[in-house]
Simulated scan of single mutants.
Amino acid sequence: MAASFLSRLTRFAFVAAAAAGLSACGVNSIPTAEENAKAKWADVQNQYQRRADLIPNLVATVKGYAKQEQDTLTKVTEARAKATSVQISAADVTDPAKMAQYQAAQGQLSAGLGRLLASVEAYPDLKSNQNFLALQSQLEGTENRIAVARRDYNEAVQAYNTTIRTFPAVIGAKVIYGAKPMVPFQATTPGADTAPTVSFDSPAAPAAAPANDNAAAPASQAAGQ
């Protein structure tokens, strides 16, 4: 009886030690950090899609008042088509080439929107159009939400990448999961990390580019609520 009890106690101790060892190796922390980063990436994509959904109405409204801006309107429409055609699944956030392609497409659309909104300054009637003003407000809020979503994603990626590179979780990352570092969002087009200016109280001018998404997020988050 005593031997049987001792045997069961030994097995229990072994299982407990093994569980503790696996936990220390990131069995739980790695997938938790991974799923959090993927969820944040979904938020980034949702906000970019929200922006893409606003653009057709914006282009149509501007076209009614500024037919001479046809070249700018065409470029924005083409940039939107390209941006929406490049989709990155959560499984692709470890692929630098795919992420760079997505970021470049969104950056080109941001640049095109910036040029379009700057051209509107020459059309007072358009600037007072109620439909345009509503689109302006929605676009401004969306750009702020994009900045916040990118910041949150980058923070989640940093946490995940740190987890899979730090002992003892690095053991589980390599042996159990074969984990790869995720790619943070980095603007690849000059000025793409700055939201297009959508206020027409004064001549449009790009805001100073923040050093990174983390630095810009607090103000953006407040404005995007």
Results as ranks from 00 to 15, higher is better:
151 R>G: 06
24 A>T: 02
41 W>S: 02
43 D>K: 04
214 N>C: 04
24 A>E: 02
200 F>H: 08
198 V>M: 15
67 K>L: 12
196 P>R: 05
148 V>D: 03
58 L>N: 11
174 K>P: 02
128 S>N: 14
47 Q>E: 13
225 Q>E: 12
117 L>G: 11
174 K>W: 08
218 P>L: 07
28 N>Q: 13
95 D>M: 02
207 A>W: 01
96 P>N: 02
59 V>C: 15
150 R>I: 01
129 N>Y: 15
223 A>S: 13
49 Q>E: 05
54 L>R: 10
205 A>Q: 12
163 T>A: 10
26 G>F: 11
100 A>F: 01
92 D>E: 05
158 Q>S: 11
118 A>K: 05
222 A>Y: 06
193 D>A: 10
115 R>S: 12
36 N>V: 08
65 Y>E: 09
155 E>C: 02
125 D>C: 08
18 A>V: 12
134 A>Y: 11
181 P>K: 02
189 T>M: 00
183 V>T: 05
81 A>P: 04
175 V>S: 02
194 T>R: 08
152 D>R: 09
19 A>Q: 01
173 A>E: 00
86 V>A: 04
190 P>T: 00
39 A>D: 09
207 A>T: 03
105 A>E: 03
131 N>F: 11
184 P>W: 01
151 R>D: 08
159 A>E: 12
185 F>P: 06
17 A>S: 07
212 N>I: 10
127 K>Y: 07
208 A>L: 07
219 A>M: 13
129 N>T: 07
133 L>Q: 15
158 Q>T: 13
215 A>V: 08
120 V>T: 14
154 N>R: 01
203 P>I: 05
95 D>G: 01
199 S>I: 01
52 A>Q: 12
141 G>I: 05
146 I>H: 10
133 L>C: 11
118 A>Q: 05
91 A>L: 06
35 E>C: 06
97 A>F: 00
208 A>G: 03
65 Y>R: 14
92 D>N: 06
46 N>H: 13
145 R>G: 13
92 D>L: 02
35 E>G: 08
53 D>T: 13
200 F>Q: 06
21 G>F: 11
99 M>V: 08
74 T>G: 06
146 I>F: 05
6 L>F: 07
198 V>I: 09
118 A>H: 05
52 A>I: 04
151 R>E: 05
85 S>Y: 06
44 V>W: 05
16 A>E: 10
224 G>I: 12
212 N>P: 14
129 N>C: 09
26 G>N: 13
149 A>C: 11
48 Y>Q: 14
190 P>M: 00
210 P>L: 03
66 A>R: 07
84 T>P: 01
2 A>K: 14
185 F>E: 07
25 C>V: 09
30 I>H: 12
73 L>A: 04
